[in-house]
Amino acid sequence: MSKDFLTLGEVGWLENFINEYTPIDLTYWSNETFMEALPIVAQGIQITLLLTVTTFALSLVLGFFWLLLESTPFRFVNLIFYWIREFIRSTPPLIQIFFVYYGLPMLQFVDISFTPFMAGLIALGVHFSTYIAEVYRSGIESVPKGQTEASIALNMTKFDKWTKIILPQAIPPTIPMLGNYLIILFKEVPLAATIGVLGILQLARNFGSQNWSYLEPLTIAALLFLVMSYPTALLIRWLEDKIKRNNPSLKKARERVEV
């Protein structure tokens, strides 16, 4: 048995316990490798966060376009865009990343190629915008019909109705939902490692292949994601509870879009 695992005297019982009573085999674990990998893998935080934030920004903008495209005066057009969105939403983002990175530059009429970062940004941004559109929609639907009627009764312009009445009420309840998607996105971003984006996951895998020990760097990667996403998730759950308590009708809308 490796003596590396938790050598501190006071937790020696844990190692004994694991050896005696569980099938877990600690032979391959090394604390030194763990400490060695930690700073290297942690360097990936920067890229992972940057890709998360830029992708999120892109999907916030594109989400708005879906709404516009699906509410034109032409039902047929709306239906087509609805199904395009459904298509993007219910197919794997990993393949969409490959499509953008390996596929698009090969088309004769497209004369560009993407860096891995750009490809990840575009593919994930479009993928997530399909969810964001749903969030926007549920926000708008949560504004009672009477508000529209009241603004008509007050003879407001269409522009005023949206900017002064509907949107100010539709946006606040969507904030925790958007927050949830930010966390979900953060956990999808490592997909970009498959095309070589040097985020947390890819640095962990690189370390693994150079040192022939994957377990420690991958454990670090998992822990880093947990440490960053869990507190954020708690914050958002708290926010959500607070808003839900103020507006119970939103519960339904939220459930419908949750991934």
């Binding site: 099938p23 877990i24 085999d25 600690l26 391959y28 674990w29 953060f186 956990k187 999808e188 971003v189 490592p190 997909l191 490692a193 498959t194 996951l201 962990a204 895998r205 994957y214 377990l215 991958l218 454990t219 990667a221 998992a222 994601f225 947990l226 996403s229 869990y230 998730a233």
Partner: peptide
Amino acid sequence: VEFFRGTSLIVQLFWLQYAIPMLLG
């Protein structure tokens, strides 16, 4: 629940690839 919700599937997949032999012997 919190561990698997807090980390991402792709990380878990790679991690389990190396951890399952250890965990299950």
